[in-house]
């Protein structure tokens, strides 16, 4: 039987369904934020639609609270996989007082959660990459069993910080995994104007550690690559660069109109083979998902996103008097 040949990367049935659920949640949260922004209920939204396989597949390897996550602004799926809730995401979208990421100070999708070791980021591209290397340096110097995953897009591979950080990590053989979600566009700039190589993972050779390119729309392939990199890091074998090729199904952000630079045919073609569609078919093939189960999962996700939206919408904004707090240690 064909089913027996499917390599599920050692994940249990329950885990496979959990991966799928987190992908659906990522999709639903991204869509909801886009809609809310269009309704005028928020000023800014960034979507992870299309990146669910890349994000959930890789982050599923992480041990929350032990390993470190250094995300970028599209990392909705990474955040929810490591343990942030739909409420956490929506509270940031509405810039609420009790938003765990920033208390409404940073833009939405700049996830931060100290207990989960998700590190606060900024908007300049690639500045987080050296932070991940520094965290991994401390893990190594302190002799701690910790691995750091750092996320960025294809545009970030052009930045000096990415080069400086990867080189540093290679020299010191640090337990860090560089994950590039290559969706072929940095806002409107096509990958052909970003780099002259087919697979950017080849650059890892120049830093003295392995680089791999995986199909980001195959969530289990991503998981396998991340697991191997995680194991290498834990074994003291140093960094890995994982290039995850995927496609963003929505505009770059709520301020972007991707019709100016991408044909609808191109978007349509990618949406036929995106990660959720493919994983759904696989789960059906494995007999883990039928229509009833699918509907039940969708209802659960919709309920969660509705509840989170209502909760966050009604939550109080930050008190203006607090804006001076936390500039320095208190």
């Amino acid at each position: 039987m064909a089913v027996e040949k499917v390599d599920t990367a050692g994940l249990t049935d329950q885990e496979l369904l959990d991966v799928y659920y987190k992908m659906l949640l990522t999709r639903a949260l991204s869509q909801r934020m886009r809609v809310l922004q269009r309704m005028g209920k928020g000023t800014f939204a960034v979507s992870a639609e299309g990146h669910e396989g890349a994000q959930v597949g890789s982050a599923y390897v992480l041990r929350p609270g032990q390993d470190w996550t250094v995300p970028y602004y599209r990392s909705v799926g990474v955040a929810v996989t490591v343990g942030m809730t739909a409420r956490d995401v929506m509270m940031a979208f509405f810039a609420r007082r009790d938003d765990i990421s920033s208390g409404g100070r940073n833009m939405p999708n700049h996830f931060s959660h100290r207990e989960l070791r998700i590190v606060s980021g900024s908007a300049p591209v690639a500045t987080q990459v050296p932070h991940a290397v520094g965290i991994a340096l401390a893990s190594k110097l302190r002799g701690l069993d910790e691995v750091t995953f750092v996320y960025f897009g294809d545009g970030a591979t052009s930045k000096g910080d990415t080069h400086e950080a990867m080189n540093f990590a290679g020299v010191h053989r640090l337990p860090v995994v560089f994950i590039c979600e290559n969706n072929s566009y940095a806002i409107s700039v096509h990958i052909s104007k970003q780099m002259a190589v087919e697979n950017v993972s080849i650059r890892a050779q120049g830093y003295g550690f392995p680089g791999v390119t995986v199909d980001g729309n195959d969530v289990l392939a991503v998981y396998r690559a991340a697991l191997e990199a995680h194991q290498r890091a834990r074994a003291g074998e140093g960094p890995t660069f994982i290039e995850v090729k995927t496609y963003r199904l929505a505009p770059h952000s709520s301020d972007d109109d991707d019709r100016r630079y991408r044909s609808r045919e191109e978007v349509e073609a990618w949406s036929q083979r995106e990660a959720i569609v493919r994983f759904r078919a696989l789960l059906q093939e494995l007999g883990l998902l039928n229509q009833e189960k699918e509907e039940s999962l969708n209802r659960r996700v919709a309920r969660e996103v509705d509840e989170a939206t209502d909760y966050a919408e009604q939550a109080p904004p930050p008190d203006p008097a607090t804006v001076f707090r936390h500039l320095y240690a208190e």
């Binding site: 765990i100 208390g103 590190v119 606060s120 936390h326």
Partner: peptide, 8 residues
Amino acid sequence: RWRSNGAW
């Protein structure tokens, strides 16, 4: 520190 509302 400021952007994480004192968390980091």
